[in-house]
Simulated assay, not measured.
Amino acid sequence: MSSMNQLSTALMLVVMPLGTAYAIEDSCLFENNRDATTRIQYSCVLANGDGNCESSGSGFIVSESGLVITNDHVIRPAGNVTVESEEIYVKTGSLGAGSVRATVVARDKVNDIALLQLPPRDYGESWQSVAIGTAVPTPVGDSLMALGFAGRELAMIPNGMKTAELAEVDGVYRPWWQTNLALNEGNSGGPVFGSNGTVIGISVAYKRSSQLISYVIPIYYAKPFLEQAGAQAVVYSSCATYPECRNKIHGIERYAVDMTVDKLGEWQAKKSSRPEFCNAYLSKLQSQFPKSEFTYLQSSQHTAMNGRKREHIYYCKFQRLEGPIYKLARSEFCLQ
């Protein structure tokens, strides 16, 4: 009996193992993560002549050096058996891609997570990796998407959401999210994306007796493996589509108040100066309109004889701006 069949039987009564920007561009997410999503084929020879085992699932590359995260049950036979030898082969992006042999780096049986190592690529090229999300809370109702090899080819699982904080499996609560992602066998170990286009979870199982009840391991539980891989978490991926807003960072489009203000003084015998006159006028404006900004534009002075008296007159002009209206644009700052 294959290990996947054994595992399915073991969880048949409750679950069957599986083989978040304000919006995500679906085609962008698929294309950008295609070559970082893997199909994993596991086979083993059991000791004592107990036969062979075989299973398959999905995974995702988390480092340029080719470290892959998947579910531990994808690369382990079910039950209390002894493995004499095992092989793990991985394809990236498509079933038509060439297979490479992977090795197990680390296992976390409790959290059902494993870390694999792919061999170096030809010509020193780097492996493409996914964008790992930051460890921020994911509220119930947040949108989710997934990638995986439920069929023979890589497929997207769209239009899902987190529906509950915990999962009850065989009468035991696990720290998995319950979701309505349409997961199937073969999706085990595949990446689950949040509304910012980053990986925030790992597909792990679905409930066989119910429609659209599936389970996801929060990426937090893979933290030791991510640290080992040197994966740096990011807030947004390049596939995140941000909402529109007016934000200071976008620059100023116009002002609610944009006008010129000026003052012509009266003829006076006492001589002053244009700077003195303009500064006094500016102080008065700033007191009268404390929320406005003022920019000097122009000033002048004239002198004339009034009989035997020499008199002076001064003029000053400012631009008054108030109530900046910022440019309408899409950016990550609209999420704040």
Rank of each mutant, 00 (worst) to 15 (best):
V136C: 05
I113C: 07
F149G: 02
R107V: 06
A155R: 10
V100F: 05
E185D: 05
T138Y: 05
P120W: 02
D122L: 08
G171Y: 01
A131C: 12
P158V: 11
D142W: 12
N159V: 10
N184Y: 03
P120E: 09
V105C: 13
T179N: 03
G151I: 08
P119D: 04
G148L: 09
L95I: 02
M156T: 13
D170S: 15
P158F: 14
L183S: 01
V172N: 15
P120C: 04
G141N: 04
T163H: 15
L166G: 08
L181I: 09
P158D: 06
L116C: 08
A97Y: 02
A135K: 01
V130D: 07
L115Q: 02
G171R: 09
G96D: 01
A182P: 05
A182F: 11
P139R: 03
P119Q: 04
M156S: 13
E153S: 08
T138A: 13
G171M: 10
V100M: 07
P119V: 10
A182D: 00
E168L: 13
W127Y: 11
I113M: 07
A155Y: 14
W177G: 07
N180E: 04
F149T: 02
G133R: 01
W127P: 00
A182N: 07
T92D: 05
A150K: 00
A146D: 03
P119L: 10
I113T: 04
L181A: 01
N184P: 02
Y123A: 14
N187K: 00
Q117E: 13
G141W: 09
G141A: 08
P119Y: 07
K91Q: 14
I113H: 06
A114K: 03
L118Q: 01
Y173M: 14
N159T: 07
L144F: 06
A182G: 07
L115V: 03
G186A: 01
N111R: 00
V104W: 09
L147N: 01
P139C: 05
W177A: 08
A106M: 11
D108M: 00
Q128N: 12
G160W: 10
P137C: 02
T163W: 15
E125Y: 12
S99M: 11
R152M: 15
P120I: 04
Q117F: 05
V136S: 12
E165M: 14
G124H: 02
M161A: 15
W177M: 08
L166E: 07
A114T: 02
Q128S: 14
N184E: 05
L154M: 10
W177C: 08
G171T: 07
M145I: 11
A164K: 09
S143R: 14
L183P: 00
P137Y: 01
P120T: 00
Y173N: 14
S94W: 02
M156Y: 14
A114G: 06
R101H: 06
R174L: 14
S94R: 02
G171L: 11
